[in-house]
């Protein structure tokens, strides 16, 4: 009996150790927050266009009847990582034919317009979220954030932070393929 009890602390330590080992997995990001939106319909929102950018605004109705999955990217001109991500998204649009929608988060219209003119504008539609309320509806924790929404407006995937670097891009590409967001030969 005494012996069994004396083993308990060791047992507890081993169990905790197992969790620690699991927690050290380099792919795990402790500050990442899972989205409640996954497999849920996209939230209700209706955003006007950004002044000075010749793209229409964005609302939920633009997400519910598409021929294939689309990408919704939340960006801002003041967000430094967005710059690096922009090149990646542009390439995805040009090379893989994804449909990209933008939510311009808490940004001045003139800054956003200049930013898009400098870097190029791969977005099909851009909604201007000046107050950040739409951001909350999407459960936004920071900028940039990127969602994949299927043709019927159901959110399939969420990526927090910039999609930059081979690892992130591979993960994102895989999600795009699974969602069928990439234009296939037949579809074009």
């Amino acid at each position: 009996m005494r012996r069994e009890i004396a083993v308990l602390p060791l047992l507890a330590a081993v169990i905790f150790g197992g969790f620690f080992l699991w927690g050290l997995n380099p792919d795990r990001d402790p500050s990442e927050i899972p989205s409640v939106l996954i497999s849920q319909p996209a939230p209700e929102f209706d955003l006007g266009p950004v002044d000075g950018v010749d793209r229409p605004g964005l609302s939920r109705s633009d997400l519910v009847s598409n021929d294939r999955a689309v990408v919704v990217n939340v960006f801002a001109s003041w967000c430094v990582p967005c710059r690096a991500e922009h090149a990646v998204l542009t390439r995805l649009v040009e090379r893989d034919g994804i449909r990209l929608f933008g939510i311009n988060y808490k940004d001045k219209a003139e800054d956003a317009a200049k930013w898009l003119s400098d870097l190029g504008n791969p977005y099909e539609r851009i909604g201007s979220d000046l107050t950040g309320r739409t951001g909350i509806e999407w459960g936004l924790s920071g900028v940039p954030e990127t969602f994949i929404v299927d043709g019927n407006g159901v959110v399939l995937f969420r990526y927090v932070g910039p999609v930059v670097g081979p690892e992130a891009e591979a993960r994102f590409m895989q999600a795009l393929e699974q969602a069928g967001a990439i234009q296939t030969e037949a579809g074009s």
């Binding site: 005494r2 083993v7 602390p9 060791l10 081993v14 150790g17 620690f20 080992l21």
Partner: peptide, 19 residues
């Protein structure tokens, strides 16, 4: 974690044995 495993695991194993 390796250090922890050796020091905590080792000492508790010793404890289970000798205590």
């Amino acid at each position: 974690l390796g250090l922890l495993a050796v020091s905590i695991g080792g000492s508790l194993a010793l404890y289970a044995w000798r205590a």
